[in-house]
Computed example of a mutant assay.
Amino acid sequence: MGLNDLINQLVEASPADRSLSQLIQIVNEDSQRTDLQLTKHYTQIVSKDFKDYVAIVGQGLLPHEFLQKAMLEVAQELVFRKKNLQLHSVESNETASFRITKEDLINDWFTSLFNKRMAEARVGINDQARGGESPSGKSPGEIDGSIRDSKNRRIAIFEAFRLFSTDVTVITTHLDKIEGYDPESLSPVFIAAYCDVIDFRSLIQGYAELVAARDHSGYTKNHPSNGVGVEVLHASDNLWLGMERRWRGPREVVFYHILLNMRFRSATATSQNATRVTPVDSCESQAYLLLSEHPVDH
Rank of each mutant, 00 (worst) to 15 (best):
S97N: 14
S97W: 11
F98T: 10
I106Q: 03
N107L: 06
F114A: 00
N115L: 04
N115S: 10
K116G: 05
R117V: 00
R117D: 01
E120F: 02
A121E: 05
V123Q: 00
I125P: 03
N126V: 09
E133Q: 08
E133N: 04
S134D: 13
S136Y: 00
G137P: 12
K138N: 13
K138A: 12
S139L: 12
P140F: 12
P140T: 08
G141C: 06
I143V: 15
D144S: 05
I147P: 03
I147A: 06
I147Q: 03
D149P: 13
D149A: 06
K151G: 07
N152I: 14
I155T: 09
A156Q: 05
E159L: 11
A160Y: 07
F161Y: 11
R162L: 11
R162M: 06
L163W: 04
T166E: 12
T166C: 14
D167Q: 09
D167N: 14
T169V: 13
T169K: 12
I171Q: 04
D176W: 06
E179N: 12
G180H: 01
P183F: 04
P183A: 02
P188F: 03
V189W: 02
I191Y: 10
I191P: 00
A193R: 01
Y194C: 07
R201Q: 14
R201E: 15
L203M: 13
I204M: 15
E209Y: 07
D215V: 03
T220N: 12
T220H: 01
K221V: 05
K221Q: 13
K221T: 05
H223G: 01
S225M: 12
V228K: 08
G229H: 05
G229L: 09
